[in-house]
Structures are given as structure tokens and as C-alpha cells.
Design a binder for these strands. Sequence first.
DNA 1: CTAGGGTTAG
Length: 651
Amino acid sequence: MRSPETVLKLVGVCKTTKLLTQLRSLTIKTGLRYDTHLAAKLTKLYYELLPVQTARKLFDEIPQPNVYTCNRILQRLCGKKRYEEVLSLFSSMVSFEKPDHFTLLFALKACSALKQINFGKTIHGLGRKYGNIHSNMFLGSGLVEMYSKCGNMDDALRAFEEYSNPDIVLWTTLVTGYEKNFVPDEALEVFTRMVMACCVGPDPITLVTAVSACTQLMNLKAGKSVHAFVLRMCYESPLPLSNALLNLYAKTGFTFCAGNLFRVMEEKDVISWSCMISCCAHNNAADRAISLFDEMIYKGVEPNSVSVISALQACEACCNLEKGRQIHELAFQKGLELDILVSTALIDMYMSCCSPHEAIMVFDRMPNKDLVSWFALLCGCVQNGLANKSMQIFRDMMANDIRPDATVMVKILGACSELGVLELTSCLHSYVIRGGFLSNSFVGASLIDCYAKCGSMEEAIKVFERLTEKDVVIWSSMFAGYGIHGQARESIKLFHRMFTDSTVYPNKVTFLSILAACSHAGFVEEGIEFFNIMLNKYQLMPESKHYAIIVDLLGRTGELDKAMSLINQMQSQVGAHVWGALLGACRIHQSAEIGDVAARNLLRLDPDNAGYYILLSNVYAVDGKWDDAAELRRSIKEKELKTITGQSVVL
DNA sequence: CTAGGGTTAG
């Protein structure tokens, strides 16, 4: 007769199914199977070596499974992320055994993963029933985490408050809960309370969460103070903390700070590289982002989907189609193209690099598609002037049972307005009503815009008048609608009606619509008056687009010097449209001198736009500067710029 | 015999 100790030792070294089967029959023959300690160890082995169903069957054969046995299994199941089975086993075990702290903790983990808040509440209640949850900090963090992951921070806070002396992990769990549920200000507040209350002080893990909260708030100052705190501490900042700080600088656009930190970091992983690449890609340093990506690959850091996506965004930003294709190839080799986020980033990249054909090929290869990938394809087609194709995509989307959201509706209405087909707009209109999208003012505004651009002011007005909740977006779209038809008088009349009929307050877009209406109809004085109202009465800081219209208006009356001095006063960045408007005016009023200034700025801002070259060459030509004009036309040819030919359609 | 909190993304 073997002793339980001998068999236990054997179980400890058992690595094969064959030996396990022998051990099992041994315990049955000798009656050792009634030893709970042995049963627990054996069950763990079942789950390690056998398929889960078989293991469960063998477990069910155990005469008196005790809490230890169950905990072992629950632990294994949690490790294998088989959370449904965790909960089913937990449910059956509570009928014959009293769960302990470990049992409850495993069950809570499963609830977090499955977002089963009601099950979690039951476990919470069970813990209270057995009375001793408050002595166990592990359960506290388990509960707070469960409620946080289920998105219920009120309950998380209540569970937290059941503990009178929370330790650092319990505090951190609550802070993380707020941060992960996008309540970063609350996260920072709890963090501050923790620093005051806890004598242990924040540890690196707490600091990571605090920095993440600062990043969400785009609060560089608070983040920097955390950074200063880290530097004051003696310990070397752990990699995740450095990465969190790097991400803070990256997201807030402080490329310089990010670069400095990146440079001094002794250890870097794929996350550090991704943060830096993404930072450069989004802050006008796309070329640097691409060389960073190359450097990362060269140094043997294995790229993952995030790094590939960031690199693709860099290609997108600088229209580097060649590099984009290279990264695509790499992503394909690494099997990353299967990632839905990577595929979507590829679609965005190809679309932005004016290669819709390749984007469509990527899309067609995708094994599964979601709303965002469909949207990327649809947007890209609109962006590339393929309005008809985008309409086809919209139909395919519906055929594939993908329900469009409001953003999709806005985009497709935009495409429809480009096509200018009234019947199509009516179709979309009925879809908008059926889908309940009219409550979204951006959809409503797009619909008004679409009818206006299809030439039906009657329908546009009908939509406008029927909307009971007219907000500033709706009103503005109607002003613009009249503007498109040159009915500045109506637009202005409606502008006044907005003040008598509603309490809506105009914004920058409102004035852009009104100014555009004035410009289109040639209402020079009125336009300038509205510009002054916007500035003085509403204290709205005009943007480049507003200036472009005013420059255009001043240009029409030949007040080029006034326009020039207005541009010189601009606080905001002078966009290409402003210089374009000035250049257009110079052509009409034959001012080569100011035209030259405008053109130089234009070519600086947008060197690839052939239209500006043509405009400038016309300025030179009317001034008799034939040599300059010829020189310019030559440089167009050299740059192989495409001139967009005008087309008219007669219906 | 077993246990809790952290970083990048379409």
C-alpha cells in the first residue's frame, strides 16, 4: 500500500497523459482518491494535460471535491481565459462548498472579462454574507476592478468605500478604473487623495495610470510634474512608466520633449518606438517617423500592428506611396495584414496617397470587416472624387447588414451632393428618416446642403422648416444653402430670423456660411459688415477661411492694399486659400507686384498645386512679363503637375 | 496548494 505522500510526489513529476492515467487508476484502486489534497493536485494535472471536457468529466468523478480542488481548476481555467467555464463551475460548487477568498477572486476575474456585472454583484453579496471580505484587500481590488471593467464607476466607488484602510493596489485599481472609463479628471482627483492619505506614496504602477490620465486631459503641466517626481526618485523609471511619459509628450505634440526622453531611455521596446513614430507622423515630421521605423526594424525590434499602423500614418502624411507599399509588404509577411486595424490603416494610406485601386484590393482581401473599415473605404472614395463608387459601397454595406451610423450618413450625403442627383438625395432622405438620423443635426445639415446642391431649394427649406430642434449647425447649413444659390438676401433675412425665432448663438461656421453667401452674390459691403460683427459683437476670432473670403471681397473692389494689410494683421496661420484669393484679385486688377508676393507664399504652402502656377503665369502675362510666364509654365512641365481640366455637363 | 493594480492603435 502506497502512502498518500508517495503518490503526491509522483503526481508532482508527472508530465505525460499515460503516466497520469496510471496514477489515476492507482488512486482509485488504493482508495487514495478520497484524499482531498491529492484530488486537488490530480485535478490540476487533468486540466494541464487533457482536453478541458475530459478534465471536467474526471473532476466530476471526484467523490468529494473540496474548495482547494475547485480553486485549482478555477485558476487553470482563468489562465486559459475560459471564463464561461469558470462561472459554470463556480455556480455548481457554491451548492456543496463554501467558497473562500481565492474562489471569489477567480470568479470575479471571469465576471470582469465577460462584463457580467450582475453575476459580479451576486459574488459581492456572497462575500458580504460570509462576512469577512473586508479583511482581504485582494478581494477589494478584485471587486473594484470588476465594477470598473463593467463600466460602472459608481458601484466601484461604493465597493472601494467598504474598505477603511485601502492599500496602494486598491487605490490604484480605483484610479485606473476612472482612467480606463474616460473620467481622467476624477482619476487625478483620486490619485491626489491617495497621495495625501496613503503613507506608502505612489509607486511606479500608480504613476503610469496618473500619466495616462494627464495624457487624456492633454494636461502637460500635471504630467510634467509627475515626470519631475519620477526623476527625483532614486529608482530607474521602469519601461512602462517611461513609455507612458513618452506617450504624454507624443500626444500633446511636444516632439522635442518626446525626442529627448526617447534618446535617454536605456531600454526601448516596440511600444516606445511606436509612440515616437506616431508622434513624428502627426507633428509634421513624417520623414523622421519613417526613418525611425526603418531604424527600429534594423535594430531587430519585432514590429507589431501598432508600430505598422503608425508608420503607415507617416506615409499617409507625406504621401509616400512607395514606402507605404514597402510597409504593406512587411505587414503581409508578418501576418499583420489580418489585423483589421492594420488593414484599415492600409486603406487610409492608399486612399490618401491617391491610389484608391490598391485600397480597394486591401479591402476585398479582408476576412472580416467592420463599420470603421467600410467607412475608411467610403471616405477614401469620396476623397478621391469617386462619388459614384462610394454610393456603390454604401449599397454593398447595407447588403452586408452593416448598419451605417450618423458619420457614414454625413459622408454619403456629401458624396451625393457632389453627384447632384436629386432622386438619389430623396432616397437617402427616406433612409435618414427610417434610420432615425434626423435627430442628429450634422445629418440634418448635410441633407439640407445636399438638396441645395442638387438644385432643390424647396426641398432644402422643407427639411429645414420641419426640424423642430434647430441648432446652430442646422441654421448655418441653411444660410449656406441660400448662399450656394446666390440668394444672399434670403440668407441674411434668415440670419435675422434666427435671433427672433430661437436662442441659438452664432459661431465661426455660421459666419463662414453668411460670408460665403455674401461673397457668392457679390455683396461686398454686407460681407465686410458681417466680418466686423463677428469680430466685435461676438468676439469670434476669424480663421484663415474667413480671411480668404474677405480678401476675395476686397479684391473685387480692387482694394488690394487693404487686403494685403489685413493679411499682415492676421493672428492665425495664413492658409493657401487666402493667398489664392489675393492672387485671383491681382490677376483681375493687374497687380503683378502683390500677385508676386501672393504666388510665392502659395508655392511655399502648396508646391504641387498646378492651378496656382497657371494663375500666376496669367498674372505675369497680363503684365507683359512673358519670360516669367514661360519660365513658370516650364516648371509645371518639369514637375509633371497635372492640370485639372474643367468639365461642363449639359443636362 | 492558490491571489490584486500599469504603457502604444484603424
